[in-house]
């Protein structure tokens, strides 16, 4: 049903999105916690920086990534020399772009969850003898779990659909950086490519709808648990 090129685009998209969410999620939790619970100098700047990818044209984000994480960019050169980690024109770069584009959505969902947790519960845990880390892992984290899950799913969906920053940063190399949206774009550029493009569009729809339904279901289960039902 799917050609090898289409299948490659699908598996690559899933791989890129999964890695993007896995790496970005702990950072998103940390950032959301800082924004929701701490007051520090430069907090508005951090907030703006986190939300920047939402409002910046994706092509700008992609170009900035290329300047920073390209092989000649400061961060790119350092990472290549120190860890052998290359982003430019690799699937890892696609994951980086997808992670950054999905980051604001994750932070937003998790931050709302943090703000919904009553700090009085955390205080109660402290009076019962729990230190900060224990309070976080036994009380706060279980209570924000639905938000974390929602953030992860949103980030995953966003990563699957990411196009502008990805194509600017890592181009559109079949098998390496050609994700689902890039493949659809590529098929639409060649005569007779429309059936393949349509198949990928259907696939993208199925994956997106499935992800949203799953997150909804999981979220309700955890919410029920937390409501004490």
């Amino acid at each position: 049903m799917l050609g090898p090129e289409e299948l490659a685009a699908l598996t690559l998209s899933l791989k890129v999105s999964l890695w993007a969410v896995l790496v970005a999620l702990p950072l998103a939790i940390l950032t959301a916690w800082a924004l929701a619970r701490r007051s520090f100098w430069g907090k508005p700047v951090l907030s703006a920086l986190v939300h920047l990818p939402l409002v910046l044209p994706p092509v700008v984000t992609g170009y900035l990534l290329l300047l920073t994480f390209g092989r000649n960019g400061p961060a790119g050169a350092f990472l290549e020399n120190a860890f052998g980690l290359v982003f430019a024109f690799r699937w890892t770069g696609a994951a980086l772009a997808a992670g950054i584009m999905g980051f604001p959505l994750m932070v937003r969902a998790i931050r709302l969850a943090f703000e919904a947790v009553d700090p009085k519960l955390e205080q109660a845990a402290a009076t019962l003898g729990a230190g900060r880390a224990r309070v976080f892992f036994t009380v706060t984290l279980p209570l924000i779990a639905p938000g974390v899950l929602a953030g992860a799913v949103l980030g995953f969906a966003k990563a699957l659909g990411e196009f502008g920053a990805t194509i600017t940063f890592v181009a559109n190399i079949p098998g390496e950086t050609q994700t689902l949206p890039s493949a659809i774009y590529a098929f639409l550029q060649v005569p007779g490519g429309e059936p393949a493009a349509l198949r990928l569009v259907a696939l993208a729809l199925i994956v997106a709808v499935g992800a949203v339904l799953m997150s909804d279901w999981l979220g309700r289960r955890v919410a029920d648990r937390i409501a004490g039902k």
């Binding site: 003898g129 729990a130 230190g131 004490g228």
Partner: peptide, 20 residues
Amino acid sequence: LLAHHRRVGVVFQDNRLFPH
């Protein structure tokens, strides 16, 4: 002394039971 080192039990007006 931090709260979790005090061994002072508190019963709050709003109970503050852990819902999960």
